[in-house]
Lab assay of single mutants.
Amino acid sequence: MRKLSDELLIESYFKATEMNLNRDFIELIENEIKRRSLGHIISV
């Protein structure tokens, strides 16, 4: 996760939620978004 750019991480989050991927996977992405202080972009 740390090698993904912020932009790609956010894009991955939206794609994963759109495709209804595994909730655990989405939570991993959400946690990384929060760690990077980007939660305001997706309202996490």
Rank of each mutant, 00 (worst) to 15 (best):
I29Q: 01
Y13M: 02
E11H: 10
A16L: 05
I41C: 09
E32W: 01
L38N: 02
H40C: 08
A16G: 04
D24P: 07
E32R: 00
R2N: 15
I33W: 01
R23P: 12
K15I: 09
N31R: 11
I33A: 02
Y13L: 03
H40V: 08
D6G: 02
E30H: 08
V44I: 13
L9R: 00
I10G: 01
E32C: 01
D24Q: 08
F25W: 14
K34Q: 10
R35P: 00
I10A: 03
L4K: 03
H40S: 07
M1V: 15
K15M: 11
T17R: 13
F25A: 07
K34N: 10
Y13V: 01
E30W: 14
S43K: 12
E27A: 12
L38Q: 02
R2G: 15
R36L: 02
K15L: 12
E11A: 14
H40L: 07
N22I: 05
I26V: 07
F25S: 06
S5D: 05
T17K: 15
E7Y: 09
D24M: 06
G39N: 09
L21S: 11
K15W: 12
V44R: 08
I26H: 02
S37W: 07
I33F: 04
L28W: 04
I10E: 02
S37N: 14
K15T: 09
S43T: 13
E27F: 09
I10F: 05
Y13F: 08
R23M: 09
F14S: 04
N22D: 14
L4S: 03
S5R: 03
A16Y: 07
E27L: 12
I29S: 00
L38P: 01
I42Q: 04
L9C: 02
N31M: 12
E11N: 08
E32Y: 02
I26Y: 03
H40Y: 12
I42E: 03
E11L: 13
M1Q: 03
E30C: 07
S43D: 12
L8M: 14
R36A: 01
E7G: 07
R2Q: 15
S5G: 04
E18N: 08
N31G: 07
N20R: 09
L8A: 15
I41P: 04
E18M: 11
I33E: 00
K3H: 15
L28S: 06
I26M: 06
E27D: 10
I29K: 00
L4A: 04
E30D: 03
R36N: 00
D24A: 10
R35N: 05
E7I: 10
K3I: 09
E27H: 09
S12D: 03
E18P: 02
H40M: 07
L28N: 05
I41F: 13
T17A: 09
I26L: 08
D6N: 12
Y13P: 00
S5T: 12
D6F: 05
E30K: 13
N20M: 10
S37D: 13
F14D: 02
L9K: 01
R36D: 00
Y13Q: 00
I41K: 08
E11V: 10
R35H: 05
D24K: 06
I33H: 00
D24F: 05
H40G: 08
D24S: 10
I10Y: 03
N20Q: 13
L9I: 04
D24R: 06
D6H: 04
E30G: 06
L38R: 02
N20W: 05
Y13C: 01
M19K: 07
E18H: 08
S5L: 04
E27V: 11
F14K: 10
I26D: 01
I29F: 10
F25L: 12
I41A: 10
E27S: 11
K3C: 07
R35D: 04
I10P: 00
R2H: 15
N31T: 12
F25P: 01
E32H: 01
R2Y: 15
G39M: 13
N31K: 11
D6L: 05
Y13T: 00
K34L: 13
I41D: 04
N31W: 09
I33P: 00
H40K: 04
E18C: 11
H40R: 02
K34Y: 12
L21R: 08
Y13D: 00
R23S: 10
F25G: 03
R35S: 05
G39Q: 13
D24W: 09
I29P: 00
E7H: 11
S5A: 05
L38Y: 03
I26K: 03
I26Q: 03
L38C: 01
M1D: 03
K34S: 06
E30S: 08
R35G: 03
M19R: 06
E32V: 02
N22G: 11
M1A: 04
I41T: 07
N31C: 06
K34G: 04
S37R: 13
N20K: 11
K15V: 09
K15P: 00
E7W: 11
E18K: 08
S5F: 04
L8F: 07
R23K: 11
R35W: 05
N22H: 10
N20E: 08
S12P: 00
E30R: 14
S43L: 13
I29C: 04
S5P: 07
S43W: 10
E27C: 07
E32A: 01
E7F: 10
E11K: 11
F14W: 13
T17F: 12
L38V: 02
I42H: 04
I10V: 08
G39H: 13
N31S: 11
S12G: 05
K15D: 04
E11I: 11
I29L: 15
K34A: 09
A16T: 03
E18G: 09
N20I: 05
D6V: 05
S37E: 12
M1Y: 13
S12H: 14
E32P: 00
L21I: 08
K3R: 09
T17M: 14
I41S: 06
L28Q: 09
N31D: 12
I29N: 00
S37T: 07
I33M: 12
D24C: 09
I10M: 07
G39R: 03
F14E: 05
G39I: 12
E11F: 11
I42N: 04
I42A: 05
F14M: 10
Y13A: 01
F25K: 05
N22Q: 09
L9D: 01
L21F: 11
H40D: 07
L9Y: 01
M19I: 06
A16I: 04
T17Q: 14
L8W: 07
S12T: 15
L38W: 03
R35L: 06
R2I: 15
E32F: 02
R23D: 07
L21K: 08
E27W: 08
K15A: 10
R23Y: 08
I10L: 11
E11Y: 11
E11W: 10
S12A: 15
F25V: 10
L4W: 15
L28E: 08
R23L: 09
R23F: 08
F25H: 08
L9G: 01
E27I: 12
L21D: 07
R36F: 02
Y13W: 14
F14L: 10
R35K: 05
R36Q: 01
L8H: 10
A16R: 05
N22M: 07
T17P: 03
I41W: 11
R35F: 07
R23E: 07
K34H: 12
L8I: 10
I29A: 02
R23N: 08
I42K: 03
D6Q: 04
I29H: 03
S12I: 15
S43M: 13
F14T: 06
R36K: 01
E18T: 10
D24Y: 05
H40Q: 07
K34E: 08
L28D: 05
S12M: 15
T17E: 07
E11D: 10
I29T: 01
S43N: 13
T17Y: 12
N31Q: 14
I42S: 04
V44P: 13
G39Y: 14
R23V: 07
E7L: 10
R36I: 01
I29W: 04
R2L: 15
R36G: 01
K15G: 05
R35C: 03
L9M: 02
N22P: 14
L21Q: 10
S5N: 06
I33N: 00
L21G: 08
M19P: 02
R36Y: 01
D24G: 09
S43I: 13
M19G: 09
I33K: 00
L38A: 02
R36E: 00
N20G: 14
I33G: 00
T17N: 10
I10C: 04
K15F: 11
F14G: 03
L28F: 05
K15N: 11
E27M: 14
S5V: 03
V44N: 14
I10N: 01
S37L: 13
M1I: 15
S12V: 15
N20F: 07
R35E: 04
E27T: 12
E30T: 12
I41Q: 07
D6K: 04
E7T: 10
L9E: 00
L9V: 03
M19C: 09
M19T: 06
L38G: 02
R2V: 14
S43E: 13
F25N: 04
F25T: 08
L4Y: 10
F25M: 11
F14P: 00
E30L: 14
E7R: 11
L4V: 06
L8R: 12
F14C: 08
M1G: 03
D6M: 04
L38D: 02
M1S: 02
F14H: 08
D6P: 03
E27P: 02
D6Y: 06
E30A: 12
R23I: 09
E7N: 09
D24I: 08
A16H: 05
K34W: 10
V44Q: 14
S37Y: 10
L21N: 08
S12W: 15
E30V: 15
